[in-house]
Amino acid sequence: MALQDKYKELIDYARTSGISDLQVREQDNVLYVDGAAPSGEVKDKLWDIYSKLDPDFRSADVVMDVNVSTAVAGSKARVTTEKSNLNIRKGPGTDQTVIGKAAHDEIVTLVSKTNNQWWLIRTDKGQEGYAYAQYLTTTS
């Protein structure tokens, strides 16, 4: 229960911010927080609190897998790379051939979710392939 005290602020926020399917579990001295956030802002806020309570994420006592629930098949997403193009690959993995690119800030369509890392996307030009989820931000 010590971890739940250390991360009380994080847990309290998670419980009151409308996260669906929220699970807060402690196992072998690691706190696992899982769920789907109603918006990217909520996810950001969770990570802000986490980094405040554990600067630079050094303690190795939290695994927080909270994705954004608005990222559903059919919705639009913006390519939020730093400034470069986003690779579109043949399959879900960086070992897969790059078959196209989506420009920084381009709007693409989410076709289906492979896992938390990879989305099958389609560009407005009709190019379809797999892109890394981290660089896709759903537009509201």
Binding site: D28, V30, W47, F57, A60, N116, Q117, Q134
Partner: peptide
């Protein structure tokens, strides 16, 4: 750092030892 951590956390590891 935060970007990398968010990606790694969603892989469902047991834990992440950050010695970066």
């Amino acid at each position: 750092l935060k970007k990398l951590m968010q990606s790694l956390h969603s892989l469902k590891p047991k834990k992440i030892e950050n010695h970066l």
